[in-house]
């Protein structure tokens, strides 16, 4: 009898927890409570429901997600954001779930840019907006499948340009550097590094990598641990990082070892909150602003325009590429001279 009662108690507790969570989910984000109550999750009923699938959540992507959520609220769109936790299979499952839910478009921040085709396949009749991660095979892009992001071919180039100018001013035509790569093999990493080298070359300065290739996977802690043993054992004139987080990790490591980070040019990409602060402090010399809010907003605007049958940049001053299927959110170089402009972007 007692055991029986306990089990029933357990069962009802579980039911209650599920109910509670459901209520939380429903009420937590006020945008989707409207559609939930009348049980209408499709798009025809005043509020459109969309899903934003994040590959993972880091600082930058978090900002992008936030901007997308904010934009959705302003547009009256019911946006459901989910985290695929770097799992392609999970991402595909989320896409299918959105399709099953009768949604008209899905915004995807791909885990693996190689899987664009599968994403499009899984999305079926839905419009697809890829954001931030450019499909490896861009033949999937068409009037129903679009990309919103920044042109990675320019991000590293800005770093290269700045460094070239810096060393030319010092009268050097050659310098050595430590390069902190993101995730090897990832398109953004490859392009950032390639465009950096191109930026140096085009401006007539020769860069020599002082170490074996380092891949700190965009992580601050990884970068810190990885660079710490090299700082005093390697000859280098600059530290170049594929993003701000890793550059900050390097700065941290230098301070730990009593090296003044202002003595060496350090450049990053992202112009994240912490990155901009470092620029103001003078520890980070230069970073490239990749506009998370712009990408987040842009993705949502593109999705809405697709559904309404407009050009994807309709209502914005952002440019399209020649096919009309890519919306470029520009990169901008950030130094101490213009860093304040980015505080409220």
């Amino acid at each position: 009898m007692k055991k029986m009662r306990k089990m029933l108690a357990g069962l009802s507790a579980m039911v209650m927890v599920v109910g509670l969570l459901t209520a939380c989910g429903g009420g937590g984000s006020d945008t989707d409570s409207g559609s939930k109550s009348d049980g209408d999750s499709g798009s025809n009923g005043g509020s459109t429901k969309l899903t934003l699938i994040m590959s993972q959540r880091d600082e930058w992507l978090g900002e992008m997600e936030e901007a997308a959520v904010k934009e959705a609220k302003e547009m009256g769109i019911n946006l459901n954001t989910v985290d695929a936790q770097s799992d392609t299979s999970k991402m595909l499952q989320f896409i299918e779930s959105a399709k099953n839910d009768g949604q008209k478009a899905v915004i995807i921040n791909m885990v693996d840019p190689e899987t664009a085709e599968q994403c499009v396949e899984a999305a079926g009749d839905m419009y697809v907006v890829f954001v931030n991660r450019y499909p490896s095979d861009d033949s999937v892009l068409n009037e129903k499948v679009v990309y919103v992001g920044s042109d990675e071919n320019t991000s590293g180039y800005f770093q290269g340009e700045w460094l070239a100018e810096h060393f030319k001013a010092e009268g050097k035509s050659e310098f050595s550097y430590i390069l902190l790569n993101g995730i090897l093999g990832q398109t953004s990493t490859t392009l950032r590094t390639e465009s950096l080298l191109k930026g140096l070359e085009d401006n007539g300065v020769k860069g020599v990598e002082a170490t074996a290739p380092l891949a700190a996977e965009y992580q601050r802690e990884n970068a810190q641990d990885m660079i710490a043993p090299l700082l005093k054992t390697t000859q280098y004139d600059a530290i170049i990082s594929n993003n701000d987080s890793m550059a900050l990790g390097a700065i941290e490591a230098m301070i730990d070892q009593g090296i003044d980070p202002t003595t060496v040019p350090i450049v990053g990409i992202d112009a994240s909150l912490d990155g901009r602060q470092a620029v103001k402090d003078g520890t980070l010399d230069m970073t490239v602003f990749q506009d998370p809010k712009g990408q987040g907003r842009g993705a949502l605007i593109a999705a809405k325009n697709l559904i309404n049958g407009n050009a994807i940049n309709d209502g914005t001053d952002w440019e399209l590429d020649e096919t009309g299927n890519i919306l470029w959110i520009p990169f901008e170089p950030v130094t101490i001279d213009n860093v304040d402009e980015y505080d409220n972007r």
Binding site: L21, T22, C24, G25, K36, N80, V82
Partner: peptide, 25 residues
């Protein structure tokens, strides 16, 4: 739980909390 809560638009973290409770339970 994975699929149903996503459809309901429940936050992932909540989903994982529920999964945790079920595993321990």
């Amino acid at each position: 739980i994975n699929n149903g809560l996503v459809l309901m638009g429940v936050d992932d973290n909540m989903t994982n909390i529920l999964k945790g409770i079920i595993i321990i339970g």
